[in-house]
Nucleic acid binder design. Structure first.
Length: 579
RNA sequence: CGGGGAGUGGCGCAGCUUGGUAGCGCGCAUGGUUUGGGACCAUGAGGCCGCAGGUUCAAGUCCUGUCUCCCCGACCA
């Protein structure tokens, strides 16, 4: 490729809209160009990288028996009505009508279409397991796009789907996919951590996210530096410990005590001389118009996402003060003791026999010796506690850290969520009709590209990993003499002939312009041919990621470059990644 | 959807307070001199100042509405 003919040119200044390095560099290097909020053109250089990333994904999917196919972007609404998501998913699903008035949707994911395929073509256990994938456009009308390609509305995704006869089959296959995901990211020069994820609206039983850790990420996760435990904030658990009875005796009967003005856990605890762990915190949430009383040990906080999941609703909100008053509840002095007509959800931190301080449902009064199970009963007891910085790790008890990251991929054990609603079954060895057990696995191509740059750049520009670089070599000629130009042209032709991907800066620009563009564009190897280099014996060869350069004789140049490319490439060849 | 900010040649910005010929840098075109870290000189091209109303003799500038974009939050497989 000749720079003089390149479609797209570099910018000296970063466009005002860019905040993240990856966004700014992609705009300055003319890798992407915005069409609308969250909708981008991929320019030729970026597209070359995209294709290489896709090929890495293909390699890894094929390696674990994936079969590539292609499913459409526009789906008939019927499929989504069958799965139920036509009714459950909000405005992020673009709905439209075709010319005959038929309801259609723009694909935001492909569980429906792939399940439709499975029910047509999978009949027997003999065909299982079956794994298909495609790399294709998705559209999600997100409320807010941000940060260039990190979060967009239209994007390319590699999504794979596996079909199994039994849970056990999925359990056996699932780790292979996780390993493939780690290998893909490693091959692209992006370090990721595998974290426990929330199953969210996808349904299913088990999920992981593959997250690139960066402060500018939008995902929050908790990780344990001691043992490596890592989980999304929405699903992270903590070791809550059990608070034994102070005196080891029996729990006395509940006793009302005056606590004037003590309307927070901290105030009550200090006033009565008890640890917050010996108190019950009571809140009222509203889930789908139903008020729910939520209790948790006083030192802990409620994770609203966990609570919503437990209640089977999309979201919960804090009850308004007048909603509390309408039920005769006094803010700051609430508890489930003596309250009827409301569902009570208790965090499992309140399990066990001991007395707590709780509200008396009366202004300026609390109760001592309140015992869950005796003085009130919960309709549902579950883990609804929020994991916070410094909380004990559920695995080893170490101190959890809050980290931010970008979710590049995710894996789900879907189970029979879609096969059941859409009637995708198979016959087992006994001839019984069973629903297919499914897994689904997504990975964002553009997002991964953005993370490649986010991870691999310096203040001068991009530093492409050899595995996904648009071109292997950036050939720069300096000066306009026939000798220099002729030599550079010859090298350009020869390298192309032996299969090296060369970007040749043949422009009549000053050295500064060319070097700065080379640094910004970031090809891993730069080859400079000038009067000076020829005088020194050949061409100057420099790695983008290193400061030093060396002179290589023109006769040795081809071999040297091929070796260098191979060596650089090997840095991104995945070894077996431990599960 | 809530809070904040911004729309002026391709990019970065000034001009708006106090209405009166639309400017600067980069980029682009042509000619010349340059050529190892964003060269220089000269001459040019390119803008319904987001859009629509209104006020005014006169609106980039004042008023109203509207659209779009960015950031934070909510949301998000």
């Amino acid at each position: 490729m000749r720079m003089s003919q390149r479609f797209g040119k570099t910018l000296r200044e970063s466009p005002a809209e860019a905040e993240l390095p990856s966004h700014s560099l992609m705009l300055r290097a003319a890798l992407i160009s915005k069409v609308a909020a969250g909708i981008y053109n991929y320019m030729p250089f970026a597209w070359r990288s995209v294709r290489k990333i896709e090929d890495i994904m293909r390699r890894e999917m094929d390696r674990i028996t994936g079969q590539e196919l292609n499913m459409p972007v526009v789906h008939p609404a019927e499929l989504w009505q069958e799965s139920g998501r036509w009714y459950g998913v909000g405005p992020e699903l673009i709905r439209m009508k075709d010319r005959s008035g038929r309801d259609m949707v723009l694909a935001m994911t492909h569980e429906e279409t792939v399940t439709d395929l499975a029910r047509r073509y999978i009949d027997s256990y003999k065909q299982l397991p079956m794994v298909v994938y495609h790399i294709q456009t998705k559209f999600r009308d997100e409320p807010r796009s941000r940060a260039g390609l990190i979060r967009v509305r239209e994007f390319i995704m590699k999504d794979a789907y596996s079909f199994h006869g039994y849970e056990q089959g999925l359990d056996e296959y699932y780790p292979l996919m996780c390993e493939a995901y780690l290998r893909i990211c490693r091959s692209c020069g992006v370090p990721v951590v595998q974290v426990l994820g929330d199953v969210g609206m996808m349904g299913g039983t088990n999920a992981h996210e593959f997250t690139y850790l960066t402060e500018s990420g939008e995902d929050t996760l908790l990780s344990c530096p001691e043992c490596g435990y890592a989980a999304n904030r929405e699903t992270a658990t903590i070791e809550k410990g059990y608070v034994p009875l102070g005196d080891g005796g029996e729990v006395a009967g509940a006793e009302k005590v005056p606590t004037p003005g003590m309307n927070t856990i901290a105030l009550v605890g200090a006033f009565l001389g008890v640890d917050p762990r010996e108190t019950i915190k009571t809140m009222v949430y509203v889930a789908k118009d139903e008020a729910v009383m939520v209790v948790i040990r006083g030192d802990l906080d409620v994770n609203e996402k966990k609570l919503a999941n437990r209640l089977g609703v999309a979201e919960v909100r804090f009850a308004e003060p007048d909603e509390l008053r309408a039920r005769g509840l006094v803010q700051g002095y609430m508890s489930p003791v003596g309250v009827s007509g409301m569902k009570v959800v208790a965090d499992d931190s309140l399990l066990g026999t001991r007395g707590y301080v709780a509200g008396a449902n009366e202004q300026d009064f609390h109760l001592r010796h309140v015992m869950p199970g005796r003085d009130f009963t919960a309709d549902l007891t579950a883990d609804i506690a929020a994991a916070r910085e410094g909380d004990p790790c559920p695995v080893c008890g170490g101190s959890l850290c809050v980290r931010r990251g970008v979710e590049i991929g995710n894996t789900f054990k879907l189970g029979t969520r879609y096969s059941q609603s859409m009637g995708a079954g198979f016959q087992d060895e006994q001839g019984n009709l069973k629903p297919l057990v499914m897994g689904c696995y997504g990975m964002g191509v553009g997002r991964l590209l953005a993370c490649v740059i986010e991870e691999n750049h310096d203040e001068r520009g991009i530093i492409w990993p050899m595995s996904v670089t648009p071109y292997h070599v950036h050939l720069v000629s300096l000066g306009t003499s026939d000798r220099v130009k002729g030599t550079a042209e010859g090298v350009y032709a020869r390298l192309q002939k032996i299969g090296v991907e060369v970007l040749y800066d043949d422009r009549d620009e000053s050295a500064g312009v060319k070097f700065n563009d080379a640094d910004l564009l970031g090809m891993p190897i730069r080859v400079t041919i000038s009067e000076r280099s020829l005088k020194q014996g050949g061409a100057e060869v420099k790695l983008r990621r290193e400061a030093d350069s060396c002179i290589v004789g023109l006769n040795d140049l081809d071999d040297t470059l091929c070796q260098l490319i191979r060596k650089e490439m090997s840095r991104y060849t995945p070894e077996e990644v431990e599960q």
